[in-house]
């Protein structure tokens, strides 16, 4: 238990992924759903970084850096996604005066 290995990080990642999926499924607030998506993306990034760091040292050099590079790209994708999603949420609120996702069941007025 006191020897921290790859599995420990993967378990944390799985738990956060499950919580994020539950947030996406259960919350009806569009901004809260966006928070769940951010947690899912973070769990995926943690997987990449942990695998890159904790692969065997006999592998070629630079593997740890590759995991971090993929993590950086995930952060970039999350930033772009958050900006677009919040713009859509604002538009939705301006049209329907609510951000309850159950109310937005049509594509066109």
């Amino acid at each position: 238990m006191w020897d921290i290995g790859l599995t420990h990080y993967l378990v944390v990642s799985c738990l956060v992924f499950g919580i994020g999926a539950m947030i996406v499924m259960m919350r009806r607030n569009a901004v809260a759903v966006l928070m769940g998506v951010e947690m899912i993306l973070n769990a995926a990034a943690l997987n990449f970084v942990a695998f890159g760091r904790l692969l065997d040292a006999r592998q070629e050099t630079g593997v740890a850096g590759v995991g971090q590079v993929v993590g950086l790209f995930i952060v970039v994708a999350a930033a772009a996604e958050a900006a677009i999603a919040l713009a859509i949420v604002l538009n939705f609120f301006n049209r329907y005066q609510t951000i309850n996702l159950d109310e937005g069941s049509e594509l066109k007025e």
């Binding site: 020897d3 921290i4 290995g5 790859l6 599995t7 420990h8 993967l10 378990v11 799985c14 738990l15 992924f17 499950g18 919580i19 999926a21 539950m22 499924m25 259960m26 695998f51 760091r53 904790l54 692969l55 065997d56 040292a57 592998q59």
Partner: peptide, 30 residues
């Protein structure tokens, strides 16, 4: 659904053996 998803993922990663994994007891890595 969420608990099932998380439990299945945790069960998978705790049972899996990654061929290139370091030894868990190597504190200088983890």
């Amino acid at each position: 659904g969420g608990v099932t998803l998380a439990a299945a993922a945790v069960a998978a990663v705790t049972r899996a053996h990654f061929a290139v994994q370091t030894e868990p007891g190597d504190p200088s890595k983890a």
